[in-house]
Amino acid sequence: MRNRLEEMRSRCGWTQQELAERVEVSRQTIISLERGRYNPSILLAFRLARQFGTQIEDLFLYSPEDDRDE
């Protein structure tokens, strides 16, 4: 699933480590999320969206093709 995590993180001026600490995951998880290799749980998606003061739909961009990648 595509997402705007890297873009929003850069806009906030946070490092991957800083974002990881804010949402209490490992830095590797942030890297995997930004590369689109890992889809977060709904709870983590909410935590991330809350950090950026946005909605999940603005952060994670779902398209029907994503179902085929699962």
């Binding site: 995951v25 590797q28 998880t29 890992y38 983590l44």
Partner: peptide, 13 residues
């Protein structure tokens, strides 16, 4: 403490 707990409970891990 925060880093270790985050690593251990990290959902991807």
């Amino acid at each position: 403490a925060r880093r270790v707990v985050a690593e251990e409970r990290d959902e991807r891990t």
